[in-house]
Design a protein around this nucleic acid. Sequence first.
DNA 1: TCGGCGTATGAGGATGATTCATGGAAGGGG
DNA 2: CCCCTTCCATGAATCATCCTCATACGCCGA
Lengths: 307, 307
Amino acid sequence: MTDPASVDSGIDLAPHELRILVAVERERGFSAAAAALGLTQSAVSHSVRGSERKIGAVLFERGRTGARPTAAGERAVAHARRILRLLDTLVAEARGAAGGAVEGPLRIAAFRSVALHLLPPVLVRLRAAHPGIEPEVRVVREVGPGTAGEVAAGRADLAIATIGTSSPIPAGLVGGVLLEEPYSFVHPAGHPDPRSLPLVDWTEACTSYTRDWWAAQDWIPRASMRTEDDGAVLSMVSAGHGMAIMPALSLTGAPATVAITDLGPQRPTREVGYVTTPELARSLAVRALIRELRADRAPSGGPDPRG
Amino acid sequence: MTDPASVDSGIDLAPHELRILVAVERERGFSAAAAALGLTQSAVSHSVRGSERKIGAVLFERGRTGARPTAAGERAVAHARRILRLLDTLVAEARGAAGGAVEGPLRIAAFRSVALHLLPPVLVRLRAAHPGIEPEVRVVREVGPGTAGEVAAGRADLAIATIGTSSPIPAGLVGGVLLEEPYSFVHPAGHPDPRSLPLVDWTEACTSYTRDWWAAQDWIPRASMRTEDDGAVLSMVSAGHGMAIMPALSLTGAPATVAITDLGPQRPTREVGYVTTPELARSLAVRALIRELRADRAPSGGPDPRG
DNA sequence: TCGGCGTATGAGGATGATTCATGGAAGGGG
DNA sequence: CCCCTTCCATGAATCATCCTCATACGCCGA
């Protein structure tokens, strides 16, 4: 401290310190973070204390129930995540530039219907083309920050998200539209008057997309029910308890007990696309995945919106 | 490689290793880098060797004349600079969040006319709003990678660059347009037939912008001369040795010995904007600078292109 | 063949990270 | 009220890592 030359030796945080900060924030506690990292609680305590001394600010409020980040801690953790990701891409890109194969983990955030029905064949082809890539799909609710929020927070490399005027690509991220899928009218097969059934909705339903459509209809649902996810909606409809307006992806592999009716040219639609960071968009693994996603979309028709 | 458990302990490079890579690239040699960092040549050699082992690629070609980066090394060094910068901002912003102030250096790359005529009032207001910020402007020729290249290489935090179809924002970076400035016809005041004078050009002139305009004109310059920069162009014109087509910023504070003629509605224009990395776009200092840049642009008219 | 200029390498010491063992503080039952 | 659990903090010992010193290697030009 007294010697100015001694300052330059250690103002910056080492990667393991950054990892510890991120883990403490994620696990909401020192002990839990230590367990998650395979370290001792003491090591985490020492490391956080050292980081705080280097930075000169308290990063976590320690309490009875664990540790929660302060305002300074929030910022530090957000930067830490991005730095760690850049460190990974540094290694990956340098390897790639050296002529090596594409390899390493690839964290994908997707909502349920995409993870179940769109990604599997894509990832099969991706692994066939690039055996070194290890895709990890995490299902994320498309509410709040949604899947794109996972990318923004550094917890995912690429997100499959609904893209539109009401949910644009977040600032600082890049992305593109993969497919525009129509909503269809789903109802129990053989029901005499399915429109009299209550409407079954779910939390992630993009109501803003369908609201305009409802407003233009001459019939409105008798009642409405809300369920957990689109799979549950399909179960309800299949059991004859209601009808629903669902996007095509959620209807993939629907049982024969439900009937699907096209809503005609005025039907509502939603656009599904990918979102990633500009950095990762340049990485070979992410580009390979986007290529496969596009190749998957291509046979189903539609012009290429790519620039 | 043989022990899988040993892999997770150290794939990522420590800050001091990144610093050494950057120094070797800058100093073009291990010994010179060691001297610059106050280390031993042996330490640099060990460190680079360790980094190469972790990455799995040769980063520098060693020879009797020193060391030069390979393709993999180029990428690694560019990432290293950006990571080191992010580490600095992490500390600075965490301190700021705790103390309430934004502080630290802010490296701006700009071409000559912007540095002379656009930035000064902006930086005055920036320093007034955030006394802790220390802006450092570096004048960079807008040729080759240009100012945006400085950001991509991690040598600047934000670049003022010309943005257009022929020079888009580089992949992996983000940016926005600040102003669209017209080119004007500059000639010696009082000259009877300025169009008969030779055209004075300079290295950075965005000839692609003006070329189309020339093609649509019914008069072509008699001859052309090339000078060092736009300031020299203005001197030549002022001395009566030629005429030129120059953007508005370069004409700020032009002497009374030159006359400026508007080229009418068909005049060529160029767009001037900022370019930064997605990570730094989230930092407080960069955001404050962009805010002041926008505030400066606003009074001169034009809609806000920002999303 | 010999300096001069680069880098590579091995051994030893300093620096720092992790662990072990222990202490303190705050709730929640009995 | 006491105990028990669950957190985090702290000090000393252990262990890994980084740095330096000394030296070896390769390459050029005189």
